[in-house]
């Protein structure tokens, strides 16, 4: 598999039971995938790995999903990174808040693989 020209995806989730199958799914779809389990690690990997898209859980140790979203959008070098919030917080206010912080899409847990792949492909095609 040639990862050199494939799109890069960062999965930020502290739950291995969510992160592992997601990582498998993305890899099976020829994406170059990395995972982070907390806020600090996520920021570190964004700066080094420079992902094209982040699958971002909101609640995890360190910076939360909203903070990471804000940091990405405030950094001019990261403006093109697409962000999908993947979360258990599904109230309308949470969705509105996520979009206000600069997320491109919002997917509620539990989701189907088809649903998340559709959204990932859609955003990466735009890119």
């Amino acid at each position: 598999m040639n990862y050199e020209f494939s799109k890069k995806i960062l999965i930020v989730d502290d739950e291995p039971s969510v992160a592992v199958p997601l990582q498998f799914l993305m890899e099976q779809n020829n994406y170059n995938v990395m995972a982070a389990s907390n806020g600090e690690e996520a920021i570190d990997k964004i700066s080094k790995f420079k992902p094209d898209l982040i699958l971002l859980d909101i609640i995890h140790p360190g910076f939360d999903g909203f903070e990471i979203c804000q940091m990405v959008r405030e950094n001019p070098e990261w403006q093109n990174i697409k962000i999908i919030l993947v979360t258990t917080q599904v109230r309308d206010v949470d969705i509105a808040k996520g979009m206000a912080f600069g997320a491109d899409a919002y997917i509620a847990k539990p989701f189907s693989n088809a649903q998340i792949m559709k959204q990932v492909k859609k955003l990466l095609q735009c890119n």
């Binding site: 599904v90 539990p110 693989n113």
Partner: peptide
Amino acid sequence: RSSLTGIRS
């Protein structure tokens, strides 16, 4: 939701 996500995926 969290557990179901893991199982479903």
